[in-house]
Structures are given as structure tokens and as C-alpha cells.
Design a protein around this nucleic acid. Structure first.
Lengths: 215, 215
DNA sequence: GCAAAAGTGTTATCCCTACACCCATGA
DNA sequence: TCATGGGTGTAGGGATAACACTTTTGC
């Protein structure tokens, strides 16, 4: 028995890409160049092609559309509600990525008229069911916060503890106690001092990096 | 732009259904009646049809093939490796369910020549990449054990604490301390005494049921 | 009365939380 | 010298983990 009498669908991989830009947690959005939802903001993503996995598709689309240095890619879920795409039967498989923006320029490509980092608390109306996908991603991000070191992929190679704390605070949406956060980091043993310091307007801050063997 | 130039795929929902049978934790498998993998054991599941979500598809297939009283259905993941199905481009979206077998008979239907509850530690060789899917399900089951009351869906309406403990022990694969397990249950407040007892070969055991408002 | 499963508390340890002051620097 | 962010320790409460004996029943 082959697949002759089986319904067929298009599959899209959509990406919720988080990054720190300007010390704020943001999501990568594109403005669509084609219908449907022409001119609307949407998640980057694209159609699965034969011969690749959905994860590869997500990686390819992200690279094609933005040239971003990929770090973590987590499966988020499948969105299959009939009618979610006005073109017809499109199932979306969503992935989540955490990237860092140091020296990175986002360039709009192919279907994207524009691409931009948008603060999470200032999201515009989104095409398709992408608002729901982002919601799933935010929930997942907070749920996994303390279980994986993935969040550190948002930070550059070396960073101050205050910067790390700020990331955690933005994700959970409330302030953390400085000493408790630091003693938690110490207990986990996931960071190491680089020996360097960041000098700014005030007392210099020690720089840290992820312990070798992380990820 | 429509979907004319986009690759199309068949989508299957596959189910990892856990149940307690004969006090042992088992998985529902079918023996395939058609090629490919004719005569091999596989997970129950079937193709997505237009107009339904993948979750509805999974529920429908489970009902069609087994008539099982459905309790919990959790999305597990997407399996899209090219070549995973010899018929061609089939993407599998896996779900997990926990059911109870009291007074339930599994009847093989449609594509299934046979359907059976198979102990988790005695799984046969499986069709497609279903062994991998089961592996994902087992990991998920253990990860979520203490976070949700879903496991109690494996047990009948009323049960003894020893039976509940046995379920937990089979899932994590190691023995638990009786007193600690009970005080944890007490702290969580998820069970209530029914007032009944189960009488057996020895001292009778009190029966418990899930606190109202569970799930 | 004996074999077998049911039932029951306490203690030590670890982790989490709350909380306030001094330090080093640039301006 | 002062304003600003960087850096540090402790004490109390709650949860977890280890641990053994008595009770009740059927046979």
C-alpha cells in the first residue's frame, strides 16, 4: 500500500528566535513580502523540502533569511488547526532558538521585506497563529530556565554576572536577589571567571564565561 | 502565492499508549497487517485527514483501532527523518496517552492484524522509527512524573497506595521509600480516602481516589 | 502462630529565601 | 568626594532522604 489515497499537506518550520539586543530580550520577526498577510509581521520560517528533516529545514531557513549564528534549536510543537493558513493545508512545526547578536546584522531575505528584533513586550499583530506559537515559546523558555544552560547562548562569550541576571529577570518577568542568584550560579558551577574585567562608568565587573563542556 | 510549488507530505499521528495491565506497565502495540513492515510490531496511529488537527487525528485513530477510554494526550514530538517510511514522505507527529485497562478489551482494527499490551522491558523490534518514539515517550514520562497527576490515569478509580507506588517505581525504574512516598502524597494533597478497603491475602489496604478537580 | 503486606514518625541535611553593607572606580 | 553599580555572608524555614518496627489479616 502506497500513499495514493492519503491526504497530503505542506509543512512549514517556523522559528521563534530570541536574542539580547541593546540589553533587552527580543524576538526576530520579519515583515512578509507576499500574500497572505502581505505586509504583516510574522515569524521567520519556510516550507519543508524533500530530503531534509524539519530541524534541518528550520536551520536552513534561519541561515538563509538572517545569516544568524545558530546555537540551540528546541522543538516547540506542532500547529495543525484547519484554516490556520488561508492558502490551505499547511502544518507548522515550531522551533525555538537562542542566539547572540554580537556583531550580527539581520538582513531581510526572500519572502521577508524587513527583518527586525522586536522587544517581547511590544509585539505587533502577527500573521497566522504566530502569536500563539510565541506564547508557547515563552512558556517553554521560562519552564526550562533553571534546567538547562541554554539561556547563556543569549550572552556573548564573556559577560558580567549582572548581565546574566538581567537575562533571567527578563525571562521570568520579575527581579531576582543578587546574592541568591550568584550563590545559585556558584552551586551549579556552570560559569568560570575569565580573569578579565569590564570597565565602565564605575567599579569594574569581573567577566565570566560558560564552563567548558557546557551545552 | 499559493502552494503549487511546495513539496507535500503525508502526516501520521502515532500514539504511545501506556497502561497498567496485570500490575505491569505496558505499551499498546499492533502487528501490522499491510506492507511496509507487514507482520512487524508498530505503534498504533494513522494518517491525518483534511479538516482535523493532529491531536484530533490521534484521538480518532486510538478510538477507531482500540475503543480505548482516552484520558490524557500529550504532544511528544515530530519525526521527519527522510527515509523513515519506505513509502515516501511521511512525517510522524507522536502523542502520548495514559489509559486504564479495567474492563477494557483491545480489539485489532483496520491495519492491525493483532493488538497487544507489551511490557516496556520486553519490546520487540519495531517498524519504522517507532523504537525512537517510544524512547522519547519514556523520557517524557519520567520527566513529568512528579509535576502532573497524569500518572494516576493509569490506575482505576480507586487504588491502594502500594499500587500507586508501584506505578511510580516502574516509571523511574528504581524502588521508592514507602514512608517518603506517602508523605509526599500527603503533602501534595492529591488523593482522598474512599473509606473502602481492598481485602486480599493479608492485612486489608485502604483505597484512595484522586482528589476532585484533578487533571 | 506465622507469613505477608499495611501502616506509621523522627532526624539530619540540603536548599531556598530574605536581608544590608562595604568596595572600587570615573567623573 | 560623591554617585553608581560591583561585590559579599548568614540565619531561619521547608523540603528531602534515610531509617525500623508494629499491626492486621488469611491461612
Amino acid at each position: 500500500m502506497g500513499l495514493r489515497h492519503v491526504d497530503m499537506f505542506a509543512l512549514a518550520a517556523d522559528l521563534v528566535v530570541f536574542a539580547l539586543e541593546d540589553t533587552r530580550l527580543k524576538i526576530l520577526l520579519i515583515r512578509r513580502g507576499n500574500s497572505p498577510f502581505k505586509g504583516h509581521w510574522a515569524l521567520p520560517g519556510g516550507f519543508l523540502e524533500k530530503g531534509e528533516t524539519l530541524e534541518q529545514c528550520a536551520e536552513r531557513e534561519l541561515a538563509e533569511e538572517t545569516g544568524i549564528e545558530l546555537r540551540h534549536l528546541k522543538p516547540l510543537g506542532t500547529f495543525s488547526k484547519p484554516g490556520r493558513d488561508p492558502r490551505g493545508d499547511v502544518i507548522s512545526v515550531a522551533y525555538m532558538a537562542l542566539v547572540r547578536t554580537d556583531g550580527l546584522t539581520v538582513t531581510a531575505g526572500s519572502d521577508a521585506r524587513e527583518a527586525a528584533w522586536v522587544p517581547m513586550d511590544k509585539l505587533p499583530k502577527l500573521a497566522f497563529d504566530h502569536a500563539k506559537i510565541i506564547d508557547t515559546a515563552r512558556t517553554r523558555l521560562t519552564d526550562d530556565l533553571y534546567q538547562s544552560q541554554a539561556v547563556f547562548s543569549l550572552l556573548p562569550d564573556s559577560f558580567t554576572l549582572a548581565e546574566a541576571q538581567s537575562v533571567f529577570e527578563q525571562i521570568i518577568g520579575e527581579p531576582l536577589d543578587k546574592r541568591n542568584f550568584r550563590s545559585w550560579l556558584h552551586k551549579e558551577g556552570i560559569l568560570q571567571e575569565t580573569g578579565e574585567e569590564r570597565r565602565g562608568a564605575h567599579r569594574p565587573a569581573k567577566l565570566y564565561s560558560l564552563e567548558e563542556g557546557g551545552l
